[in-house]
Amino acid sequence: MNHLTVKNFGKPDEHVDLSGHGHRDMVMLDGMPIELAEFERGWRWSTDVKPMAGTDTCQVHHLGYCLEGHLRVHMDDGTDQDIHAGDAFEIPAGHDAEVVGGGKVVLLDFGKAFDNR
Rank of each mutant, 00 (worst) to 15 (best):
D77F: 10
G42K: 14
T5W: 11
E40M: 15
G101C: 11
D17S: 15
P51K: 06
S46L: 06
I34W: 01
D76F: 05
Q81L: 10
P12F: 09
G101A: 10
V27C: 04
G42D: 03
M32D: 09
E90Y: 10
G31S: 08
T47V: 15
E14F: 12
G42N: 07
Q81A: 10
Q59N: 09
F110M: 08
E35V: 09
L36G: 01
A88F: 02
M26F: 06
K112W: 10
G94Y: 02
G78I: 04
G103I: 05
H23S: 15
A113V: 09
M52G: 11
K112R: 13
G86V: 12
I83T: 03
A53E: 09
M26S: 13
P12Q: 08
N116S: 11
L4D: 15
P51Q: 06
H95E: 03
G42T: 05
D48M: 11
D82T: 00
K11D: 09
P92S: 07
K11V: 12
V105D: 02
L71R: 04
A85N: 02
E68T: 08
G101P: 08
A93T: 13
D96L: 07
A97V: 00
T47W: 00
R72I: 07
D96F: 05
F110G: 01
A85S: 04
L4E: 15
V106H: 06
G42E: 00
K11R: 14
M52V: 12
Q59H: 05
M32W: 08
G42H: 06
V27A: 02
H95I: 02
D80T: 15
Q81H: 14
M26D: 11
F39Y: 13
D80V: 15
R117A: 14
P92N: 05
V105I: 03
D48F: 03
C58T: 05
H74D: 06
H74Y: 13
V100F: 12
A53H: 05
N8L: 07
K50G: 04
L4I: 15
K112I: 10
H23G: 12
K11L: 13
G111Q: 01
D30V: 14
T79L: 10
V105L: 04
P92M: 03
L107W: 02
V16C: 13
K104V: 09
S19T: 11
P92T: 00
H3C: 13
E90M: 11
R24A: 03
G69R: 02
T79A: 10
E90V: 11
H15V: 12
A53N: 05
R44E: 10
E68S: 07
N2V: 06
A85E: 00
G20M: 08
D48P: 11
P12W: 08
G64V: 01
H15G: 09
R24W: 06
T79I: 08
Y65S: 03
H84I: 08
P33D: 06
V99D: 00
K50E: 05
E98K: 07
R41Q: 13
A113W: 01
A113R: 01
A113H: 02
F39Q: 02
I83R: 00
L67F: 09
D56G: 13
R72L: 14
W43H: 07
V99P: 02
L4K: 14
V105C: 00
V99F: 05
G102N: 14
Y65R: 04
H15S: 12
E68I: 06
P92E: 00
